[in-house]
Simulated scan of single mutants.
Amino acid sequence: MQKEIDQAISVLQQGGLILYPTDTVWGIGCDATNESAVKKIYDLKQREDSKALICLVANDAMLERTIEEVPDLAYDIMDLSTKPTTIVYDNPKGIAKNLIAEDNTLAVRVASDKFCRYLINKFKKPIVSTSSNISGRPTPKSFGEIDKVILKGVDYVVNLQPEEKNAVPSAIIKLSSDGTVKVIRE
């Protein structure tokens, strides 16, 4: 696993794209602070950059460095969630501008997958995590379902085949600074 982490970090540091197993589905990732790398993902997915992408962090400390003010309720939601849960926060900071939604929000998930946590911890920055499909097409439920265009379009494919444990996208909850909670995807 260490060799895979080192190779993925090398690609991320150079502004490249990786295809990697997450705590949900296989994801396309890049340095979440690198605007040109984020643009490569939008181009590869053939997706408008007005449709926000998810960002993964390794732990609560990295979350707090990425979001201006993390509401206390966010920690309760993460602790009580029975499946991976992405939370949309107000006022992100230190992130590529084209990753931030028009309403100044950012979707962030604290990774629960061991490989992802190690990778992000060693990289020391958040990484993008978006499903490995062309926009508008179904999300692949296994590595074998990933479109060849995606496989050829990334700079590195992490050579780890996780057990197909979850293979469903995360829940998404929008948590506004004013205390409003909205479920976007269950």
Rank of each mutant, 00 (worst) to 15 (best):
M1N: 07
K3T: 05
I5E: 07
D6R: 02
Q7F: 02
Q7T: 15
I9H: 04
S10P: 00
V11Y: 04
V11T: 03
V11M: 01
L12C: 09
Q14F: 01
G15Y: 13
L17H: 11
T24H: 11
V25G: 01
G27M: 09
G29W: 06
G29K: 05
C30A: 14
A32N: 11
T33R: 15
T33P: 08
N34V: 12
E35N: 15
S36E: 13
S36Q: 15
Y42W: 15
K45M: 11
Q46I: 13
Q46N: 14
R47F: 14
E48R: 11
D49P: 05
S50P: 00
K51I: 08
I54K: 03
C55K: 06
C55G: 10
L56N: 04
L56V: 10
L56K: 09
V57L: 11
A58W: 00
N59K: 08
D60S: 10
D60H: 09
A61Y: 01
M62W: 02
L63D: 09
E64C: 13
E64Q: 15
R65Y: 00
I67S: 00
V70Y: 04
D72K: 15
Y75H: 14
Y75S: 08
D76H: 13
D76A: 12
I77W: 05
I77T: 08
I77H: 03
M78T: 12
D79N: 12
L80P: 00
S81Y: 06
P84K: 00
T85K: 02
T86M: 03
I87V: 10
Y89W: 06
D90A: 07
K93R: 14
K93Y: 03
K93F: 06
G94F: 09
G94R: 01
K97Q: 13
K97V: 07
K97L: 09
L99E: 04
I100A: 11
I100C: 08
E102C: 05
D103S: 10
D103P: 06
T105C: 04
T105I: 01
A107T: 09
A107H: 05
V108M: 10
R109T: 08
R109V: 12
V110F: 02
S112H: 14
D113I: 01
D113C: 13
F115H: 07
F115K: 02
Y118N: 13
N121W: 00
N121K: 08
K124T: 11
S129G: 12
S129E: 05
T130V: 11
T130G: 07
N133C: 06
N133T: 03
I134M: 08
S135E: 11
S135R: 12
T139N: 05
P140I: 10
S142R: 06
S142E: 12
E145T: 07
D147Q: 10
D147L: 08
V149A: 11
V149M: 02
K152E: 14
G153N: 10
V154W: 02
Y156Q: 07
V157A: 03
V157L: 01
N159A: 13
L160Q: 00
E163V: 13
E164K: 10
K165H: 03
A167F: 05
A171T: 13
I172G: 01
I172N: 00
K174C: 05
K174N: 05
K174E: 09
S176V: 00
S176T: 07
S177A: 14
D178A: 06
T180D: 04
V181W: 03
K182W: 00
V183D: 01
I184P: 03
R185H: 01
